[in-house]
């Protein structure tokens, strides 16, 4: 079993909370689809910092969980970028406000 002192885990939790807050703000304050994708990835990094130190008491569980989550996130990035490129080709814009006005 991995022994991690509580202070390090606490610092990781605080970091994850701040990173999630920054990502949420970026997601809400921008209207560019690519910037929103980057903000979602920031939130994902924060969640990874939040969940994996919780599971660190069982290192096998944490390892399997981390590998599965990172794999799914990587595939999700590819799919979302493909969708954004399809939007870009179809509507000639990457602004979510324009897409909302066009009732996409």
């Amino acid at each position: 079993m991995i022994i991690v002192d509580q202070l390090s885990a606490l610092i990781a939790f605080i970091t994850s909370a701040v990173v999630i807050a920054i990502g949420s703000y970026g997601l809400a304050s921008s209207n560019n689809l690519l910037r929103q994708l980057l903000s979602v990835e920031v939130i994902f990094n924060g969640l990874l910092l939040l969940v994996l130190p919780i599971l660190i008491g069982d290192p096998y569980m944490a390892t399997y969980f981390g590998i599965v989550v990172v794999s799914i996130a990587s595939v999700e990035v590819v799919v979302v970028v493909a969708i954004i490129l399809a939007f870009m080709r179809a509507y000639r814009t990457l602004s979510s406000s324009d897409l909302e006005e066009k009732e996409v």
């Binding site: 390090s8 990874l48 130190p53 944490a62 390892t63 990172v70």
Partner: peptide, 20 residues
Amino acid sequence: TASILALLGLGIVAAYIVLV
């Protein structure tokens, strides 16, 4: 993020994050 996880003892996950 990978470096923090490596410092916490999850080296395999950190390597996977960096690679993938």
